[in-house]
Design a protein around this nucleic acid. Sequence first.
DNA 1: ATTATTAATTGTCAAAACGACAATTAATAA
DNA 2: TTATTAATTGTCGTTTTGACAATTAATAAT
Lengths: 232, 232
Amino acid sequence: MIEYSRQPHYLVAVDCIVFGFDGEHLKILLVKRGLEPEINKWSLMGGFVGADESPDDAANRVLKKMTGLEGVYLEQLQIYGEPSRDPIERTLSVGYFALIDIHKYETQLNDDYEAEWFLINDRPKLIFDHNEMVADARKKLRYKAALHPILFEMLPKQFTIPQLHTLFEEVNDTKIDTRNFSRKITSTGLLIKLEEKDRSGSKKGAFYFKLDKKKYSANSQAFLNLMPNLKS
Amino acid sequence: MIEYSRQPHYLVAVDCIVFGFDGEHLKILLVKRGLEPEINKWSLMGGFVGADESPDDAANRVLKKMTGLEGVYLEQLQIYGEPSRDPIERTLSVGYFALIDIHKYETQLNDDYEAEWFLINDRPKLIFDHNEMVADARKKLRYKAALHPILFEMLPKQFTIPQLHTLFEEVNDTKIDTRNFSRKITSTGLLIKLEEKDRSGSKKGAFYFKLDKKKYSANSQAFLNLMPNLKS
DNA sequence: ATTATTAATTGTCAAAACGACAATTAATAA
DNA sequence: TTATTAATTGTCGTTTTGACAATTAATAAT
């Protein structure tokens, strides 16, 4: 029987940075940790990778359990593996960032897991290296969103240009000219204008758009240059 | 004493996809595996993550041992963690891709570890999921190189525009117009033209350039649009 | 009924970047 | 002196960009 002699074994976990958008601000979903150490402190939602699942499987399982959502946009961030990152026992964690439509989130789960949405810029300190993970995830979200149309994942099926505009401004933490933004985003050919208007935000109302799913899947890997000043 | 009760533990390894450029073609460095199973089959260079090191540390250690090089450009690719990816025992592997100047590589190490450079397009089948890793690494290299000036890591300190041009064509597996390429690459402001010429490749000779290290470190995180047709 | 108000939408223009394309130059070989 | 080879430089029409403000559609106020 072949075996790998005397190599150390470690725990492997996943931690998810869950981003959402409430129409005004970028938010992340945090939970109160349910086990020692650091019990009852705020942390990312995570869990150990089980014997019969991949890290991707584990991340999806954790998300399903804590948000009620399946088929969420999920992307591997990186592995966090400093020997001392977990004080109890060496644990490597695979970081994931997830984009979800905050309105699909099942609020009753808030109570089950003591989960809560926080403004990205006004969140509590987190345990271990989770603060670093959030910073990394935010950076990667920005990077990716500048080139690929992924922010739609945080919006309802129908959305308006002003909503999209605000979301881009939030993610990039900067002001974007409405006229130039509108021109760029429509020139991608990814949007389909609908008849209906959203009248909740203003007197005039803003037209709803939806994604052209065909073009979306075809373009999701293409470069799009969705942000100004990328070349500075 | 707090502990995480009865969670499964796994082996954690690193595997490095090492890219090099010989002046004409993109190559990867492979080794003959030294342990069972699949002993003597070609594989990526890798090793287990030791108790006192992070995966990044482990990757650097492996690279140092097998190439003689330190301070190599190294970037985390992703984690490979399918439960069945290693037939002997569950092992998660962190993939890294490395860019090295093939001329700095210490050839005597070829014999020590039965390592060998292969043309990227003419390489042997590898063990486990290493073929998938190479494909992923190549994709990421292409992606990254289109936006960031990282390919310089594979060239000597002094290099010529035609060399750079060939390298870009190899990485992207496409022909690039010399005039447009030259314009773009010089307009980045990252290159400093030297007095000397490389006369090995032609009668006329090609001027050597070197990197402006200040601008390089300032720009290494910026977007640069180094490839044509990014927006198709 | 008219006007004021508010936010969404659309438009202009000059500068820069782009891609397609070919001529010129510097060196050696014939 | 000419031929050859590869490096280098240049043109032009089109598209994209960023900076900027006017118009439109609806409701609220007078």
